[in-house]
Every structure is written in C-alpha cells, then in structure tokens.
Design a protein around this nucleic acid. Sequence first.
DNA 1: CCAAAAGTGTTATGAATACACCCATGG
DNA 2: CCATGGGTGTATTCATAACACTTTTGG
Lengths: 264, 264
Amino acid sequence: MSANRSTDPSTDSIVHSGDDLTEAEFLARYDAGAYERPSVTVDMAVFTIREGRLAVLLVLRGGHPFRGRWALPGGFIGPDESAEVAAGRELAEECGAELAARAHLEALDHYTDPDRDPRTRVISLAYVAFVPDAPDPTAGDDAAAARFWILDDLVGPEAPELAFDHDLILADAVERVRSRIEYTTLAATFLDEPFTIAELRRIYEAIWGVTLDPANFHRKVRNSDGFVIAAEGRATPTLGRPAALYRRGPASTMHPPILRPDPT
Amino acid sequence: MSANRSTDPSTDSIVHSGDDLTEAEFLARYDAGAYERPSVTVDMAVFTIREGRLAVLLVLRGGHPFRGRWALPGGFIGPDESAEVAAGRELAEECGAELAARAHLEALDHYTDPDRDPRTRVISLAYVAFVPDAPDPTAGDDAAAARFWILDDLVGPEAPELAFDHDLILADAVERVRSRIEYTTLAATFLDEPFTIAELRRIYEAIWGVTLDPANFHRKVRNSDGFVIAAEGRATPTLGRPAALYRRGPASTMHPPILRPDPT
DNA sequence: CCAAAAGTGTTATGAATACACCCATGG
DNA sequence: CCATGGGTGTATTCATAACACTTTTGG
C-alpha cells in the first residue's frame, strides 16, 4: 500500500483518521474526488455464424484515436450502471434491442495495461456475446460502419489491424467461446428456436473449424441431460429425411462434455 | 452510446469534432479530466493449505468503511501500473516479497455493481493466487490483523460476515480454484519443491474436500505428460515406504484432466 | 428407384474405478 | 515380523470413435 499511498482512498489516514467517527459520519465526509482514477470501458466480442463460419461484430472507428481502424464495439461505463448493464445497452445500440434481448452475455476478462489507450488510462472490461444469425447492424453515431467479420478473414496479410489491443481481446474471446461450448450448452444460443440437431452440429463445426461425425454428435446431444428438448413438427429440408425439431433445454452445463477433436 | 453521451470520452464530438485534426493533435488536446470515472481496486483471494484444508488470506479492516470486518486483501490500482502488477505489489506487502515471487497469480473476474462500495463508485478486479504453506503474514498499516482462514470456518453461524461483496468474490474464487486444478497443473504451485505424489494428492483432497484413491491418483499424475518430473532422493516418512520426489513439470494444462469425483 | 440427409446399431479402443497385491521402511 | 504408507497389476465399467446400416423424404 505504501508505494501507492497518495492515490489510495482506502488508506483512510490520508483523508481522515476515521477512528473517532461512526461509519455514517465517515461516509458523509468522504471525498471521492481526491484520487486519480482510470477510465473504464466495456468492450464486447459479439459472435454469430455467417456463411457457416464463426463471425464477430466490428465497428469502423469514425473518430480519434485509431480513426479508420476496425474495433470491437464498446463504450464507457455510466456512473450508475454495472458493466453488464452497460454492455447490454451498448449491444442493443449496435445490434438492435430485440437481438440484444436474445443474446447471452458473459464476462470475459479485464485489460489493464497502463498504455493500452493513447488518450489516457483506460481499463477495459471485456464481454463475449452470442446471437443467432442476424442482419448486419446499422452504424451508431460514433462509428463509420458496423458489420460482422468472418473470423478467418481477420488473419493473413489482407486482414485489418484492429484498434487498441482489440486483437488480443478478440483472441481471448475466440478461445473462450471455443472452450465454453465444450462443457456448456451455450452453442444453442447461436440458433433461433426451433432448431435441428444438425443445425446445432454446424454451429460446433463453425466455431471449432472442424467436421464432426453426425451420428455420434446426435447421440451425444440427445444423451446430454437437459441440453435440448423435443419440439413439435419436422424441418422441411431441401434434400433428405426431415429432421426432428428441438428447443434449448434447462441445462447450462454438460456432464460429460462434448470435447473438441484432437487437432492432430 | 447516446444514453451515456455526457460521460463518454469516446464520443469525440463532445470534446472536439476531431475531423480536421491528426491523431497526434487530437491526443495533445484530449482532456482526460472531463468525465466521471469510477475508482478501481484489485482484490485477491490468496489460497494456501492449512491443517490439510483449503485456507484463504483475510485482513481485518482497521478503518472505515466496514471497520472491524474481515475482507480480502487488496487496494487501489496506481495510475501507472497494470492490475496484475498492482495485485503482485499488494500480495508482496501482505505476505512478503519472497512468497509473492513464488505465487501464481491469475485474473478471476470483475465486480461492478454501482452500490458495492458505500464510499463511491468502485469497480473491483479480482485475482486468485496460490502459495505454498506459509507463515501468517504481518498486518499492514491499514489492516488491524491478517491471517489465513480455513474455508470451512467461514461458513455457519460462527462465521464472520465479510466486508463489501467479498463473500461473493470468495465464492467465485473457490469455485475457480476447484475447477482449475482439474485441467491445469496449478495444484503443484501449492507445494514447495521437491514434493511427493502423496503430498500433491493431499492438495487435491484439501481443495475438493474429498478423499482420493492413492493408487489411481498416482497413476494419473505420472501419466499426465509434463505435470511432474522426477527429482533426486527420497522423502523421509515417519511411517511406511519412502516416497519418490518430484518437481513441477513444464506442462500447464492436462489432457485428459483429473476430474472431481461425482459428489453423489 | 435413387440420392441425400437423419438417425440407430455395433464394435473396438482408451480412460476411470475399485481393489487386490507387492514394496520399502521404522519400530 | 508387523504396521504403514508408497506404488503396481488387473478386471470391470463406461464413454468415445469409426463406420455399417436403416429410415424418410423429394425428385
């Protein structure tokens, strides 16, 4: 603590000894403005499936810094809202309210390098969100454009360089979603209900970038208690036997998990 | 964004249109003080093993707010340090530098409820740390006392009520460490080198609160590539056959994992 | 009838469990 | 030689992977 004393509001003796005050008195006299504070943003990796592949929502920055670079959508946390509320609000503004209502939002990590933003000290709280295949959003006021990028198009020499440390955040987010669908039922949140087991399998294939055995996948999902529940009716395929329809079940985790195939 | 415009430094038009500036000019004119900012702390759940059971470091608060309550150690982030550096610094101050140097520190989550701190808006970045069995730390200036609490002593009617939302953070941290040792080699960081397989097993038993089959555990650890590597010599037991000694191996994850026994 | 996709059956392999059994030491 | 904990062998059970096979539709 001593190394940080001048900026540390928990070191009460700098403000007031406090020893002779009740907690109510202490709080009434507390001066919140006496210390240097970082700015705090939420940044979101909003995933969906596009052309059978994993895609993430990026916005083209219309203002400084990093004007003209693609970035994860996000914004500063309001003084009276939690980070999760702020993320939901931003998502609604980027993708529309009805889509945000269906999205599953989940805390990812925090990014705190003092130099990660050239303006000032900015700490980012990162979230991941999963939405069913959705139309491209309309750009907000401070973004020149907003669209889903297929992840494969973000690697290689043609790929845009992202603003801030968003390439790092995105890499963490991709790994998170890839490992998360192994032992949770999250993959189903990428689909509109009702859906078929094969559609769910294509979600896994898109996120992992592999092909899975349809027969074994079908069995695993059906045997996983509460993952999916049968719905009325049949899918109307362009070809082949019509598939049974399902909805998301009550379970949020799977035992045993559906493990990624060994990339060997 | 529009709902939050007045506190949002990314909405450049409020500060300056920016359109006619280079990025360098924009940054030179940027006023970081124009927006309301939260305070940001790091809080740590520092785990060790005490009396064969999982224990966590708590400090008794000497000042307001929550004076006289036990809390996770932590402190405010300095203006020029990352959260990880801040956590390491705080840990060194609480537990001693040599112990902090051996500790494995890992980001847990962030806690952002606007009302979680009665003083002002405070966002907490939570970390978990794992240290070999260590002497009780000496309390720092702003703590009346600091000691390891066996986790089982923190439940029940006799248990102290923690400050802030630290009971929630601690619950998340415990679940994290319990699941983390399933598929990482983290448990070995609770031990001084060299150690025996049985000592490692007792770490798992302490963290999960179960008893494990010594024979099967031994095989799983030995078969897990890079988890442990053989060291010279033998342990000198009080009873029974002397055990072989090992050091931490290069692997950080395990395939397949060592799964918790079903609590059924 | 044929093609194609959905879904079931069957076998082989690999890991986990339970537990019998051997090993190495101190008393 | 006995008690105790370290460590290996082995049979059973269970999940997975591979793939043959059946079902159900449209053309």
